[in-house]
Simulated assay, not measured.
Amino acid sequence: MAEDRGDFANALDLAQFGHMHGAALRLHATAVAYEGRGVLILGASGAGKSSLALDLIAFGAELICDDAILLEADTEGLSLRAPPERLPMIEARGIGLLNAGPLVDQAALALVLYLQDMPQPRLPATRMAMWRGHFARLLGVNARVPQTSAVVHALRHGFAPLA
Rank of each mutant, 00 (worst) to 15 (best):
V32E: 09
A33W: 00
A33V: 03
E35P: 01
R37A: 12
V39S: 03
I41W: 06
A44S: 11
K49D: 14
K49Q: 14
K49M: 15
S50K: 10
S51W: 06
S51R: 12
L52R: 10
L52P: 02
A53M: 09
L54P: 01
D55P: 00
D55K: 10
D55C: 08
L56T: 04
L56P: 00
L56F: 09
I57E: 05
I57D: 06
I57M: 12
I57R: 04
A58E: 15
A58I: 10
A58G: 15
G60S: 12
E62R: 13
L63F: 03
I64H: 04
C65S: 05
D67E: 14
I69L: 01
L70S: 06
L70G: 05
L70W: 07
A73T: 14
A73K: 11
T75F: 11
G77N: 13
L78M: 09
L78H: 02
L80D: 02
L80E: 02
R81Y: 04
R81K: 14
A82S: 14
A82R: 01
P83D: 06
P84G: 11
P84R: 06
P84C: 10
E85Y: 10
R86F: 05
R86N: 09
L87C: 04
I90H: 05
I90G: 05
A92R: 14
R93T: 13
I95G: 11
G96D: 13
G96K: 08
L98R: 05
A100R: 00
G101M: 03
P102C: 13
A110L: 09
L111W: 05
L111R: 02
V112C: 08
V112E: 00
L113M: 09
Y114D: 14
Y114Q: 12
Y114T: 07
Y114V: 06
L115V: 10
L115R: 07
Q116A: 12
Q116D: 14
Q116I: 04
M118I: 07
M118V: 09
M118L: 10
M118G: 03
M118C: 10
P119F: 12
P119T: 11
Q120H: 06
P121Y: 03
P121N: 07
R122E: 15
R122Y: 11
L123T: 12
L123G: 10
P124N: 15
P124I: 13
A125P: 07
R127F: 10
R127V: 07
M128R: 14
A129F: 09
A129L: 11
M130F: 09
M130T: 11
M130G: 08
W131R: 04
F135L: 12
F135Q: 04
A136F: 00
L139K: 02
G140R: 05
A143V: 04
R144W: 08
R144Y: 10
R144M: 12
V145R: 14
V145I: 15
Q147P: 04
S149T: 12
A150F: 07
